[in-house]
Design a protein around this nucleic acid. Structure first.
Length: 475
RNA sequence: GUCCCCAUCGUCUAGCGGUUAGGACAUCACCCUUUCAAGGUGAAGACACGGGUUCGAUUCCCGUUGGGGAUACCA
């Protein structure tokens, strides 16, 4: 039997980090098994579901590269089928009409709480004659759940979980307005879609018992369950909106790569020995359900950042240029073909110093910024008159230099430093300030090689002639 | 309240009765060095507690504590 997994988000918000991990695990397991991965939008709560949320979820899935094997299923479109399933249960005696009004239910809950019992519906309409139905009350249809014994879930993550049936009440399958509830819809859809493995958050563990009862009552084989521990925030509390539970789009905007998220999310709750850096191909080959941990994990931005730095270093220069170009353009810079080429040449020096696309773009800015380069405060301090004189002394040599490449430039500068009896830093730092406008940058000789002779000399000339630029920044 | 789940360095985790309890991130030190990173070397840092079982428990069982989840005509 081929494996079928599904990701079934309810479209009430963005694709958050926990949902993304659930989707990833389902996707990986299907890919690993050579099965199919399906996407189902659980929009049975029409009031809370929004078009924007649906788009945000699809968008997030696309960005993460989690492609589904069939077009997404919208649960709301299967309503007729869900109602039909309930009618069949009514006919087979597995369901009944309940005429309780909300106030009655509230009283019931309160009474149960007072007695220290689990707050459950007491099944008062289970066997009551429908002729006693009060006038003007639209009934709900409830599942006639087993009252004795227990329901056992053989969970692939949590192990064998036993829940006494008296802990589960007769759940509502059809609301008084005739619409199906989530609990019923999931079971019917999972069955109809041929889902073999339900991999989802821990918060559904008890639901798995109710759903198992439903599957059994309908005469269907329940799927294999695997309930993932939830992800917690840095403070250990539930990863909620106010704890920085952001959508995956927020991480994209912070400059993280999708492969970083995939690797990070995979390691959050799943392990393969001591392996940390795991490519998606490797993950597909290795992913097994028994590698999933049982305890909740905290989301750690520092580790995510470190991982992103790693993937940035591994990313092809051309792709990086493509990714930061929009950021630079948003910053008011025009990136034409020569500028893009210069950025690409600069990437080997920029990449290892960056942790996100945002700081990569910021660090790359000086390469394509228009002259004159505005030095920042610290850089301006370095460009005092003495330093400018030292820089001026370099110009003839740079003009004459035969091979304008990193080694040639380095040899020349070192020679100049030695000649004047200065430590390299005494020349290199002002030079860096003049060329990059900053006190930190990639290797100086590499910077000069990438900038080219004309641009280098031009930037030096700017500093030499335009004292105002330097002086102005000094205070 | 009731039911369910969980518990190894600050964090993510390895471990599946006998280990100097391993790795990664973060932290600190040193090396490298034209700045900043990267890289290299090293340091510090954990089995929540109490009972059992066993020749022997981080590992198995029970309890305590702590954390989380579920208790809807939401999903």
């Amino acid at each position: 039997m081929s494996v079928v997994t599904r990701f079934a988000p309810s479209p009430t918000g963005f694709l958050h980090i926990g949902g993304a991990r659930t989707a990833l695990f389902n996707w990986l397991y299907a890919r690993h098994c050579g099965g199919r991965f399906l996407l189902r939008v659980e929009d049975t709560d029409r009031a809370r579901s929004t078009e924007a949320a649906i788009e945000a979820i699809f968008d997030g899935m696309r960005w993460l590269g989690l492609d589904s094997d069939e077009p997404p299923v919208f649960q709301s479109k299967n309503q007729a089928r869900h109602v039909e399933a309930v009618e069949a249960m009514l006919a087979s005696g597995h369901a009944y009409r309940c005429y309780c009004i909300p106030e009655e239910l509230a009283d019931m809950r309160e009474a149960a709480k007072a007695e220290g019992r689990k707050a459950l519906y007491d099944g008062r309409w289970r066997d009551r004659d429908p002729a006693e139905a009060p006038a003007g009350v639209d009934p709900v249809i409830r599942f006639k759940a087993p009252r004795d014994g227990e329901t056992v879930i053989d969970d692939r993550v949590q192990g064998e979980v036993r829940i006494a049936n008296d802990q589960l009440d007769d759940l509502v399958m059809l609301r008084s307005d005739g619409t199906p509830t989530y609990m019923l819809s999931v079971v019917v859809d999972d069955h109809d879609m041929g889902v073999t493995h339900v991999i989802r958050g821990d918060d559904h563990l008890v639901n798995a018992a109710r759903q198992t009862q439903l599957f059994l009552a309908m005469g269907w084989q329940p799927p294999v369950f695997a309930h993932l521990p939830l992800i917690h925030g840095q403070d250990g509390a539930k990863l909620s909106k106010r704890h920085g539970a952001l959508g995956v789009d927020a991480y994209r905007d912070m400059g993280f790569l999708p492969e970083t998220l995939r690797n990070y999310l995979l390691r959050l709750g799943w392990s393969h020995g001591d392996d940390e850096i795991i490519s998606t191909e490797q993950a597909i080959a290795w992913f097994e359900l028994d590698g999933i941990g049982k305890s909740a994990a905290r989301f750690d931005l520092a580790k995510l950042t470190n991982l992103n730095a790693h993937y940035l270093r591994e990313t092809a220069d051309g792709r990086l240029v493509g990714l930061i170009t929009p950021l630079l353009e948003a910053d008011g810079l025009a990136i034409d073909a020569p500028a893009a080429a210069r950025l690409e040449a600069a990437m080997p020096g920029l990449k290892p110093r960056a942790t996100t696309l945002l700081d990569l773009a910021a660090a790359a800015r000086f390469y394509v910024a228009p002259r004159p380069i505005r030095p920042d405060d610290k850089a301006a301090t370095l460009l005092d008159p003495d330093a400018r004189q030292r820089l001026a002394a370099l110009v003839p040599g740079l003009e004459r230099l035969a091979d304008w490449d990193e080694t040639g430039i380095e040899a020349l500068i070192r020679e100049e430093a030695e000649k004047s009896g200065l430590k390299l830093g005494k020349i290199a730092q002002p030079l860096r300030a003049a060329l990059t406008g900053s006190t930190t940058s990639p290797g100086l000789f590499e910077v000069m090689a990438v900038l080219g002779r004309d641009e280098t000399l031009g930037r030096l000339a700017d500093v030499m002639t335009n004292h105002d630029v330097a002086m102005q920044q000094k205070d």
